[in-house]
Design a protein around this nucleic acid. Structure first.
Length: 598
RNA sequence: GCGCCCUUAGCUCAGUUGGAUAGAGCAUCCGCCUUCUAAGCGGACGGUCGCAGGUUCGAAUCCUGCAGGGCGCGCCA
């Protein structure tokens, strides 16, 4: 069951082929001139160029072949050789019935499902998530859901940054601040009589008082000190190496860091409706590193350089010299490129992904290019299987990465709370809330907040940066998440009313312009999914959801439903049902949930 | 210095891989609620697509140069 565009493309391709013309550019697309046609094919122009013929003649010949197609109400030539197609009401009605009957609301499956892993590019342990993590969560989640909906087997992995230098910095900083912690770390490091299962069984009581707030407070200080004080930095790097060598004191203190961080992360992700299949991190591949390093050495890829061990990844024809992958630091510790490489190896062994998508800030493009090249050299993945999906930053009104009024980084939790407060305010302004139970009102406010944040983000192409504007995002007017929820809720309300009156859906019979427009929009769902999938660009789905809402709203204004005569009412109810299902499906792919009323 | 990305309506952004008259939203102005949620719908206003060349029948889109902005460039992630 394919959409109209696909069916018409096939017909056009057949027509081109019958005329001895290449069929590959016969593609039919939605018309740029809705006043003239529903669909168009520009293939005659390209074919004429290749064959050195008159495009209008070719268009006329193709048009004649298409003329008899029962789906088409008219075939016309316009301009230099555009073929304009108008679909018959009957074909539109039939297509609407198909979509309405389809649990997938018109969205097709990929021909061959693949195994895809989405890497959310890790929030860091010991640092609360800030607005910078918002985009990778939102975009990664949308890509995961999109791929899954289209039939791929997808695993999402948070991939925490929990094993690097910042851990050494924090171990040092916490010990400096708390003598008891320091003593315990030293005692454990030196202890000779630990039980075999100490890594998982021991939870030293003194470590229990270290909170995320402590880490959050100490980290910026320690990072700053590490930058200016070489001795302090060296100690942190040594402590990092100790942690990675699993010295008990360092390791168990680190486990406390990971524990308190995880609680906060789960809270923030839950609030955003984001979840992971794997909560893995850099530390999980630590055991693989020694053998991986040995293997890289065996393969002759590892080179000594300035006390460190590196893999050179520069290639012939590079426009500039790409730095090498730093595998082992001069201190003997693993760098983030090391764990990233080991993670690729781990995923190859455990999941055999056809593709791994890294959903990480554009600024890390070079890093991933380096790691990917090393992975290809080492045979841990095939060229092209690893892909970095970069995105821009969320900026403040000044056009620079978003900061609080005080100039600090805004924590994700605070951002979510801010948005939720605003959502409540908006709902109350609109006179909602008095009639609703407290719990439902809170649920709605939460959904409105998430819709506002996610839709604002996802309506932009991921590669570009955007300006954060809470008032605009939470507005119920215009191209916003709350507007989409309102539209969906309005359909739900209509359908409830219909049900109360005993009105049921029936076969679609398209007659009105608003009905035509709505069905054409419904039909365009699959094309939006394909585009979003191929370009890893959820904004195509967001755009479709918005267009669908608009089409429905026009239909809703122009075509009375419940008061129409029975056959028309049944047809329009079917259209409303199909719209709701597709809209909810599109929003679900974006990670946006719709309340029942608002 | 080298490299990557960006520059489209007053503001925030899309732009179907080179096609017709470059689209939305906000803002401004004008209409439409005794009728299914007006948080809506219809209409108007608003553009040298950063600048200059080039390729092409045809360029916001491809190539070159320039200007402005952002980002990155091995022991942080």
């Amino acid at each position: 069951m394919s959409d109209l565009k696909t069916g018409l493309s096939e017909a056009a391709a057949a027509a081109f082929a019958a005329l001895g013309l290449p069929a590959d550019n016969a593609r039919v697309t939605p018309s740029d001139r809705p006043d003239l046609a529903d669909f168009q094919s520009n293939g005659a122009l390209a074919a004429a160029k290749r064959a050195g013929k008159n495009p209008r003649e070719i268009a006329a010949a193709v048009a004649e072949k298409l003329q008899g197609d029962p789906r088409l109400a008219s075939v016309e030539i316009a301009g230099p050789g555009f073929i304009n197609l108008k679909v018959s009401d009957a074909a539109l009605s039939q297509r609407a019935d198909q979509i309405a009957a389809d649990p997938r609301a018109g969205g097709e499956l990929v021909p061959e499902p693949r195994k895809v892993l989405v890497d959310y590019g890790g929030p860091n342990v010991a640092k609360p998530m800030h607005v910078g993590h918002l985009r990778s969560s939102i975009i990664g989640e949308a890509i995961k859901r999109l791929y899954r909906f289209r039939g791929d087997v997808v695993i999402g992995d948070a991939h925490f940054g929990d094993w690097g230098y910042q851990m050494g910095l924090l171990i040092g900083a916490v010990c400096d601040e708390d003598e008891a912690v320091r003593a315990e770390v030293e005692r454990l490091n030196a202890a000779a009589d630990l039980p075999a299962e100490w890594m998982t069984s021991l939870e030293p009581e003194v470590f229990g008082k270290v909170s995320l707030a402590d880490l959050d407070r100490l980290y910026p200080q320690a990072a700053a000190k590490g930058k200016e004080d070489p001795a302090y930095r060296d100690r942190a790097r040594k402590l990092t190496a100790e942690l990675q060598a699993k010295k008990p004191g360092a390791y168990l203190l680190w486990r406390q860091f990971a524990k308190v961080t995880r609680v906060a992360l789960e809270r923030d992700f839950h609030a955003l409706g984001v979840d992971f299949d794997l909560w893995k991190g850099e530390s999980d591949v630590d055991d693989l590193i020694p053998s991986m390093v040995a293997e890289l050495a065996d393969k002759g890829l590892l080179v000594e350089d300035a006390g460190a061990r590196i893999v050179r990844v520069a290639r012939e024809g590079d426009k500039r010299e790409l730095p090498p992958l730093l595998v082992v630091s001069s201190e003997g510790s693993a760098m983030y490129g090391t764990t990233d490489l080991a993670t690729i190896l781990d995923r190859k062994n455990s999941f055999h992904p056809d593709q791994v998508i890294y959903c990480v800030d554009q600024r890390q493009a070079d890093h991933f290019e380096i790691v990917f090249r090393a992975a290809y050299l080492a045979g841990y993945a095939q060229e092209g299987q690893l892909e970095h999906i970069g995105f821009g930053t969320m900026n403040g009104p000044d056009g620079k990465p978003f900061k609080t009024r005080e100039g600090g980084v805004l924590k994700l939790n605070d951002l979510i709370q801010m948005t939720r407060d605003k959502a409540r305010e908006r709902l109350l302004e609109a006179g909602l809330g008095e009639n609703l139970p407290e719990a439902e009102f809170e649920d709605i406010a939460g959904k409105v907040a998430v819709a506002a944040l996610k839709f604002a983000d996802l309506q932009n192409f991921r590669g570009t940066s955007y300006v954060f504007d809470l008032d605009r995002f939470t507005s119920f007017e215009g191209k916003t998440g709350p507007y989409l929820l309102y539209q969906a809720v309005r359909v739900k309300s209509l359908l409830r009313k219909a049900e109360g009156e005993g009105a049921v859906g029936g076969p679609v019979a398209v007659t009105e312009p608003a009905e035509r427009d709505l069905v054409l929009t419904l039909d365009a769902f699959d094309a939006a999914l394909v585009e979003a999938y191929d370009k890893k660009a959820p904004n195509a789905v967001a755009e479709h959801a918005y267009r669908l809402s608009q089409s429905f709203s026009k239909f809703y204004a122009a075509c009375p439903i419940l008061s129409a005569e029975p056959a028309v009412r049944a047809s329009r109810l079917t259209l409303a049902q199909a719209t709701l299902r597709q809209l909810e499906q599109a929003l679900d792919i974006l990670g946006i949930a719709v309340p029942d009323r608002m």
